[in-house]
């Protein structure tokens, strides 16, 4: 088994200002499944094809944005190893007790140089993907809306970009897959801990700790167009798309949840192996890097975060 260390983005905890509107958006419109609620008022959701109990936590708040993003590591030894890596990098870590999030084991919590809070954990209750493990059907029949398959990645705007990327590549063992550069300055970094085109991406910014989008995988370009239909049908504020990215090649559409957190659903992006070359886009060609067809940057897409 080649995959070790950090396996994947395990969950994202998003702040929402109206819980029932948020649950309707993520469940009825996007197809996530509610798996639990806790006495802090948090609601736990998963996409249908995830085995673990939750990949999105909605937290009641008076503002929008991301509370934290958590990565699942393969073993408990990995958890302690990354804890000491992060400490040795010079960043304080905190242990959050098992069960603080329902069904999640002990978590290591820290604030990255970008200003975002990240967590690592090794254990989460598995509830399955709704299909048997013996002679499984290809998909469950009762999934709603866009039928999101899994929580895939976040794109974050943050400060201290270079130091932040050093934390992710050196201490957390992510690999750079694609980047936008302006001369010597890296403007955007796409990082992978797996064979995915990215598991997280960062944009150099002046404001710490901002969420650009939380992204979910769909099965095909046709499913992205179907998501676009749902966005119009349900009056969901559209941002950009459907279109194709140059970066990662994904086919994509962007829209906002009822608290103003941007979501993406996408399909058919590229993949990588540890021996794949890093792909570089020049800032002079940033329009095409981001929106391959129109080659035009969109103000709201570049400027609006939560």
């Amino acid at each position: 088994m080649a995959m070790t260390g950090i396996l994947r983005p395990g969950h994202v905890q998003l702040r929402v200002m109206d819980m029932e509107e948020a649950v309707t958006h993520y469940c009825d419109n996007m197809g996530l499944i509610e798996t639990d609620r806790d006495d802090h008022g948090r609601v736990y959701l998963k996409c249908w094809d995830e085995q673990d109990k939750f990949s999105v936590v909605l937290e009641p708040s008076d503002r929008a944005g991301m509370d934290h993003m958590a990565f699942k590591v393969r073993t408990e030894q990995d958890l302690w190893r990354f804890e000491s890596n992060v400490k040795n990098f010079g960043i304080d870590t905190k242990r959050v007790a098992a069960g603080e999030l329902n069904g999640c084991g002990e978590r290591i919590r820290f604030t990255a140089p970008s200003g975002h809070t990240f967590e690592l954990y090794a254990e989460k209750e598995q509830v399955g993907n709704g299909l048997p493990t013996l002679n499984p059907a290809p998909w469950p029949e009762d999934i709603k809306g866009m039928k999101a398959i899994r929580f895939d990645h976040c794109l974050l705007y943050g400060v201290d970009h270079d130091e932040n990327i050093r934390l992710f590549t050196e201490a957390l063992e992510f690999e750079l897959t694609e980047q936008i550069v302006d001369g010597d300055v890296q403007v955007a970094a796409f990082l992978s801990c797996s064979t995915k085109a990215h598991d997280i991406a960062f944009i150099r910014s002046e404001e710490p700790g901002k969420l650009h989008h939380a992204s979910f995988l769909l099965g095909s370009w046709e499913q992205v167009l179907r998501a676009a239909d749902i966005i119009s049908m349900k009056d969901i504020p559209l941002d950009v798309g459907p279109t194709r990215h140059g970066l990662t090649r994904g086919m994509t559409i962007y829209y906002f949840d009822p608290s103003g957190n941007r979501n993406e659903v996408f399909a058919e992006d590229s993949y990588r192996y540890p021996d794949s070359p890093v792909l570089t886009w020049e800032a002079s060609n940033v329009g095409q890097a981001i929106f391959y067809h129109s080659r035009q940057l969109v103000d709201s897409f570049m400027g609006v975060t939560s």
Binding site: S259, G303, V304
Partner: peptide
């Protein structure tokens, strides 16, 4: 006219 999130979250 900055069209942002149209959901009260981004502040534009």
């Amino acid at each position: 006219i900055p069209v942002g999130c149209r959901s009260g979250g981004c502040g534009v």
